[in-house]
């Protein structure tokens, strides 16, 4: 018997979300993804290389991203990753879910005495 938890789609991790967001504008290699996620998050998200490639390996296996091409720069390999249709759909759904979640709070916020409205 499959437990109830198995039927619920797991929430997307923050690393996965930011990597997919970074790839929306086009294929990037590892260092490019690290820089782009840092820019998009205003410096809040700093992916360690081990964390990045663990996530890239799982996301490739899940069909969210794919290898776009490989280049050799200064004698070193650079592999570029691109977002797939499945990845595009997943990050769009996650963004919509978070927007709905944020709306629950925003719609109920009232100005409290002594605080400026948001």
């Amino acid at each position: 018997m499959v437990p109830a938890m198995a039927k619920r789609s797991p929430l997307m991790s923050e690393a996965t979300y930011h990597i997919l967001a970074a790839l929306l504008e086009g294929p990037l290699h590892g260092y490019g993804i690290i820089k782009r996620t840092q820019e998009l998050s205003g410096g809040r998200v700093r992916l360690a290389v081990g964390t990045l490639y663990g996530a890239l390996d799982r996301m490739t296996g899940d069909g969210l991203i794919a290898v776009d091409r490989e280049e050799t720069v200064d004698g070193r390999q650079r592999r570029y990753f691109r977002i797939t249709d499945e990845g595009h759909r997943a990050v769009s759904q996650e963004a919509a879910r978070m927007a709905r979640a944020a709306e629950i709070v925003r719609g109920r916020m009232v100005a409290r005495p002594g605080t400026a409205p948001a």
Partner: peptide, 16 residues
């Protein structure tokens, strides 16, 4: 895993 990503990880580590 090293076969799939090893060279790429080293390249990225050196870039960072």
């Amino acid at each position: 895993f090293r076969d799939r990503h090893g060279a790429d990880i080293i390249g990225t580590l050196m870039e960072t």
